[in-house]
Amino acid sequence: MSRTIKGKQRLPSSIALRIAAVAVLTAVTAVLTLLVRIPVPATKGYFNLGDTVIYFTAFTIGPLSALLSGGLGTALADLIGFPTFAPISLFVHGLQGLVAALIAGLFLGAKQRRRAFNPSWLLAAAAGTLTMCGGYFAAESVMLGIGPALVELPFNLLQNVVGAAAGMALSLVVRKAYPPVAELRW
């Protein structure tokens, strides 16, 4: 018996594929959070690219991948050096990815090929920034007190603004350079 299988527009909704997507993106988030630490000359702090990957995932793949890989990836990175913040990162960065991806997806027509810049990304980035900065501020106020939480706030804000901008740029470039990425939606 002969059969024809037509090329699908989307990859199959397989559990293995979802596990694979979240595992790989989690690893990328963790590595770029840990590895790429750009020293901020003004203070002695570091600036990492975890948020960049979270926004990339939110704008390119989808809400559930952003929720899971953003949370797990940053939490894993924390576990390696800074276990105290792992549970906070898990929730706050996960939520940040989810919120950004949901808002970015809200204004998309089903038919839209999602190749160009979408203005809703700005709103999504703002909401993501609010979620992340607010979440960390709340958690750090309890954990460290109001003072240190206030000191961290501007760094988190900066990291989000840069992360969102870089995430958008990467999302556009990667879709152009590797069109099959559009088939991964979760």
């Binding site: 770029l32 990339f56 990667v174 990425v181």
Partner: peptide, 19 residues
């Protein structure tokens, strides 16, 4: 950015293969 692009594409390509 160009380096991140490479790393992201290489990683995303591994997703279906890992699946």
């Amino acid at each position: 950015l160009p380096q991140l692009t490479s790393v992201l594409i290489l990683s995303i390509r591994r997703i279906p293969i890992l699946a």
